[in-house]
C-alpha cells in the first residue's frame, strides 16, 4: 500500500468516527463510540503495517523513541498529580480545615466533590497535553538530529 492511500484512510476513518461520535451523543450510547474508536485504531494500525514506501531508518526510530520517552516522563508527573488530587477529593481529604475540626461534632457538609464531568474534561485535557507534548518533543528531536538541515548539494 502506498503511504498516500494510508493518509487518505486516516481521513476517512476520522470522518466515520466523527459521524459515529455524533450518533452516539444523539442516542446516548457512549459504548458504541468506544468500540468504534478501538476498531478504528486497530484498522489504522493494520493499514500502517501494510504501507511499503515508508522509510523508517535508525535515526527516525531514535527520534520517535526519544520523543515518546520524554513525553512519558512529563506526562506521568501530570497524570499522577491529577490522579492523587482526584482520589483525595473522593476520600474527602485532606480533612485539615479549621471548619472541619471546629464542627466535627455537628453534621458537617463534606467538601464539594469533583464531579465526574470535570474529571472527564481534565482527562481529555491531559490527553491533549500528551499529544502536544509528543508533537513538541518530536519537533525538538527531529531538529536536533538534523531533520531541517539545509543541503548545499
Amino acid at each position: 500500500m502506498k503511504k498516500n492511500i494510508f493518509y487518505l484512510m486516516i481521513g476517512v476513518v476520522a470522518l466515520v468516527l466523527l459521524a459515529i461520535f455524533g450518533y452516539s451523543v444523539e442516542k446516548f450510547t457512549p459504548v458504541l463510540f468506544m468500540i468504534a474508536f478501538v476498531i478504528g485504531v486497530i484498522l489504522l494500525y493494520v493499514a500502517y503495517r501494510r504501507v511499503d514506501d515508508f522509510i523508517e531508518d535508525e535515526r527516525s526510530a531514535r527520534i520517535t523513541e526519544k520523543a515518546a520517552m520524554r513525553t512519558l516522563q512529563v506526562f506521568w508527573v501530570c497524570f499522577c498529580a491529577f490522579s492523587i488530587m482526584a482520589v483525595m477529593n473522593l476520600l474527602y481529604m485532606p480533612r485539615f480545615s479549621r471548619e472541619f475540626w471546629l464542627n466535627r461534632e455537628n453534621d458537617i457538609v463534606p467538601p464539594e466533590l469533583m464531579s465526574l464531568k470535570i474529571i472527564g474534561y481534565i482527562q481529555l485535557a491531559l490527553l491533549c497535553l500528551m499529544i502536544f507534548l509528543y508533537v513538541g518533543f518530536r519537533i525538538y528531536y527531529a531538529r536536533k538530529y538534523g531533520d531541517w538541515e539545509t543541503d548545499e548539494e
Binding site: D57, E58, R59, S60, R62, E149, D151
Partner: peptide
Amino acid sequence: IGVTRQTILAIEKGKYVPSLDL
C-alpha cells in the same frame, strides 16, 4: 544503504552519530 537522504545529511553534518551497523 536503505536509509533516508535526511539521515545521510545529518551524519555528514555531525548532527547524528550512526550506529555501528550503519
